[in-house]
């Protein structure tokens, strides 16, 4: 697959793909449409970023072999001005797409543009999951932490993916056998089967890095008992599935590309299977990684 080289190409690649989802599953058009502009613009933001300099990165093969990811979350820190610029492009789209949290998104926008130092601290607090720091930064403002995480997570995404793509190739012989990301340590949002042999790849929910993983193993608890692993799919769309683990009751959505003609951009493949999130969560399973679209509230 040819990587997009310009912002326009990057935008159109995602925009076109989500447009296709809307045609294929019109019942979920409102969800796809809500994320369409934000994710496409996010791809355009990423296409314009310069590679992150990792020349001083020290790779410790022993720690890596023991399951320690290459980067700590602070290596994903973003310079305040760049973050503000990205927020300036993405937040108005979010406000338009998610009217129920529009007021809160406006407050987030104000916070981000108040000072670049505060903005950097806020981004770091969100990506490292530091709830105390989030509360401190929010102060007395009327913002739900969930809305804040949602917005900052989407703004952060292009930067995180760009950082992961900027990493130098690993020395030969370094293998990773964990279900979490070898780059940042986050859980996978997507599983992909591809090639004639059906190699399984997992895609990180934070930095987008992809790594090989065992075909019959739960990424979240390591369970390899095939009687406790199940695949659920909808008739007529059997290349899209949810891989369930009865042991830890978690799942990851998966796409089987073995007999597919067209590539699906992996960045948005999980969004296209949101109908499976609904079905599986109804059965009492929870997503192994939270994505902006897979936290479904029951009414």
């Amino acid at each position: 697959m040819t990587e997009p080289t310009t912002r326009t190409q990057a935008y159109e690649r995602i925009d076109g793909c989500i447009g296709g989802m809307m045609e294929q599953i019109p019942q979920l058009s409102n969800i796809f449409d809500a994320f369409r502009g934000v994710l496409a613009e996010g791809a355009a933001v990423k296409a314009a970023l310069a590679a992150v300099d990792f020349t001083n990165l020290e790779i410790n093969p022993e720690r890596y072999a023991q399951g320690v990811p290459l980067l700590t979350k602070d290596r994903f820190a973003v310079e305040g001005k760049s973050f503000q610029d990205a927020a300036g492009r993405l937040l108005p789209l979010m406000e338009k797409s998610f009217p129920s949290i529009r007021d809160q998104l406006r407050v987030v926008n104000e916070m981000i543009h108040e000072s670049s130092i505060q903005c950097e601290a806020l981004a770091m607090a969100v990506i490292s999951g530091n709830e105390e720091e989030i509360r401190k930064t929010v102060g007395t403002r009327d913002v739900d932490p969930g809305a804040l995480r949602f917005a900052v997570g989407l703004i952060m995404k292009p930067f995180a993916e760009n950082a992961a793509e900027s990493l130098p190739p690993l020395p030969e012989g370094m293998e990773w056998h964990q279900g979490y990301c070898p780059v940042c340590g986050s859980w996978p949002e997507l599983s992909v089967l591809e090639g004639k042999e059906g190699r399984r790849w997992l895609r990180c929910s934070f930095c987008g890095h992809e790594w090989r993983f065992m075909r019959i193993q739960c990424p979240f608890c390591g369970n390899t008992d095939q009687d406790k692993l199940e695949v659920l799919f909808q008739e007529g769309r059997d290349h899209e599935r949810a891989e369930l683990c009865h042991e830890c009751r978690k799942y990851v959505v998966a796409v089987d590309m073995r007999d597919r003609i067209e590539e699906i951009p992996h960045e948005v493949a999980a969004l296209g299977m949101v109908y499976l999130d609904m079905l599986v969560q109804e059965k009492g399973y929870s997503p192994g990684a939270r994505c902006p679209w897979n936290v479904i509230e029951r009414q």
């Binding site: 007999d259 597919r260 003609i261």
Partner: peptide, 23 residues
């Protein structure tokens, strides 16, 4: 019928050596 639904032709999918490719 397969191609119209985004799937590879059956013969191409079955070919184990890569002699047949579709695109």
């Amino acid at each position: 019928d397969r191609v119209g639904n985004g799937m590879l032709p059956a013969c191409v999918k079955a070919c184990p050596t890569g002699a047949m490719t579709f695109g």
